[in-house]
Design a protein around this nucleic acid. Structure first.
Length: 462
RNA sequence: GAGACCGUGGCAGAGAGGAAAUGCUGCAGCCUGCAAAGCUGUGAUGCGUCGGUUCGAAUCCGACCGGUCUCUCCA
């Protein structure tokens, strides 16, 4: 039985899809005005694992993740750069796709863009206007009237009257109520915008996701996900708009991934601990970063630090050291393995990746024990472990590649191989002094030699 | 101020009424020419503190202490 934590009820619930065997899931994607940062990566990887697992479990998944490609931040960036906003978004969408590929994040089934759904957005606002749940302000902005949706706050557990205290009242307020939020924002005639019944303008952020999710998945669908910081107001507003417009339940379950922190502090540009994915990947292997992002449960905060990266390096080295001397290609597929069952049981429990890792480490121990006792079984278990690792998007490299890649750029592999050959000869001559000398020489190059019965192998000291 | 969440061995991190997973680290042993890797053993009589419920609590309830997040466009 698959159990998922539902942010709406704040508890784990049995997952019952609307249609047996199928899952419809919408996740709030990025606003593309800059490079993907580690916080984004956390969200992308979290839902990538969730979708991979749902598929591995046999569900037919329809995974939608949008792109917000028109927004104040984008327009500001375009103005700063003195370029057309569409060039800004195209560039950062391309960069985002690059970073996703590096981190083994599979593309969603659809990646709708706000600018390609203006008609649906306008149509949804029209429905709200017709129902008198929204109103046009004098300047052409259109606002949603929060008071008319009594369930407002059901996701973030906020009370309507308490929200009034904290609501920011701006000078020259156009809203009838400070809690109301924009569905449509008027644009200057020479600015970016589209014609609408309320005048020239562009969509508000919240309505984009309501319109795109409904367009792709229907009024009512299984799962809506995103970062926990989007719960209020973004997701709250989505629920209000959608349920008010359709008079049907919106997403049945809400899933929120936890935040990423850096050295125990919130990641921010002002603190100087802000990392983009591409910066991090210059210094660390993408698989290591991915491991770090799923070594904690998706709802827990993750702390990104030098130390946590080191732990992920060690963890992956353990896996790949184990796989290194197996031959998997001709191994039979193990069926009904207790490890596979335990892995699925862990993931069935709200995608408990740390528990699932526990199972994989148990497999490593068992494989290492069986290498001598029952090599066939070791190979079979190894093959299964690679398959299970694949559900997490890990362990798909060849062991020697993982263990040997990521050294300094000037590492001369031919020289390493040559030194190892020389050392082999020295060892055959029982010239331990010479062998140790060569080993020290390799160590200076950040290369670790490991002697085994079949010959010596090497890996990078990370 | 309001709301939500969290506090588990040296570190990381599961467990959510009935033997405290797992990884790293430490120590001991085996293996090895020596290492590395691997294997075996060892490590919280205890799960922030104090009470309560229960035959039984890390798990439920209450208070307190400490920490984090959210509060109108941040994943």
């Amino acid at each position: 039985m698959l159990v998922i934590h539902n942010s709406l009820t704040q508890r784990k619930e049995e997952f019952r899809p609307l249609e047996a065997g199928k899952v419809s899931i919408y996740v709030c994607g990025l606003t593309v005005y800059d490079y993907v940062h580690l916080g984004h990566a956390r969200m992308l990887v979290a839902f990538d694992v969730i979708v991979r697992y749902l598929r591995a479990r046999g569900f037919e998944v329809n995974y939608i993740r949008n792109i917000t490609d028109v927004d104040d931040k984008i327009l500001n960036r375009a103005t700063e750069n003195e370029e057309w906003y569409g060039d800004v978004t195209e560039r950062f969408i391309a960069a985002m796709h690059e970073d996703e590929r590096a981190l083994a994040i599979l593309p969603p089934d659809q990646e709708p863009r706000a600018t390609e759904h203006i008609d649906e957005i306008v149509a949804m606002i029209e429905v709200l206007m017709d129902k008198d749940l929204a109103y046009r302000a004098d300047n052409g902005d259109v606002y949603f009237s929060v008071m008319q949706y009594p369930d407002y706050g059901k996701l973030s557990k906020k009370k309507l009257d308490e929200l009034l205290d904290g609501a920011r009242v701006e000078v020259g307020e156009l809203k009838r109520d400070p809690r109301d939020f924009a569905l449509w924002k008027a644009s200057p005639d020479d600015g970016v915008g589209w014609d609408s019944p309320w005048g020239y303008g562009r969509p508000g952020w919240h309505i984009e996701c309501s319109a795109m999710s409904t367009c792709a998945l229907g009024d009512n669908f299984d799962i809506h996900g995103g970062g926990s910081d989007l719960m209020f107001p973004h997701h709250e507003n989505e629920i209000a708009q959608s349920e008010a417009a359709t008079e049907k339940p919106f997403a049945n379950m809400w899933m929120h991934n936890g935040p990423l922190r850096v050295d125990d502090e919130k990641m921010s540009k002002s603190l100087g601990n802000f990392f983009t994915v591409r910066e991090v990947l210059q210094n660390y292997d993408a698989e290591v970063v991915r491991h770090l992002l799923i070594a904690s449960h998706y709802r827990s905060p993750i702390n990104y630090s030098e130390q946590s990266l080191k732990q992920s390096i060690k963890a992956l080295e353990r896996f790949y050291q184990c796989l290194k001397d197996l031959s998997l290609s001709d191994a039979k597929w193990l069926t009904n393995s207790r490890f596979e069952k335990a892995f699925f049981a862990a993931m069935d429990d709200d995608f408990n990746t740390p528990k699932a890792f526990g199972v994989l480490y148990d497999m490593v121990s068992e494989i290492n024990r069986q290498k001598a006792a029952n090599p066939d079984l070791a190979n079979q278990l190894g093959r299964l472990m690679v398959k299970l690792g694949g559900i997490l998007g890990l362990l798909q490299s060849s062991p020697s590649d993982f263990l040997q890649r990521g050294g300094s750029a000037e590492l001369d592999v031919a020289k390493v191989e040559d030194l190892i050959a020389q050392r082999e000869r020295a060892r055959q001559d029982r010239d331990w002094h010479r062998a140790d000398e060569i080993r020290a020489q390799l160590a200076a190059m950040k290369v670790v030699v490991e002697d085994a019965v079949g010959g010596s192998s090497w890996r990078i000291e990370r």
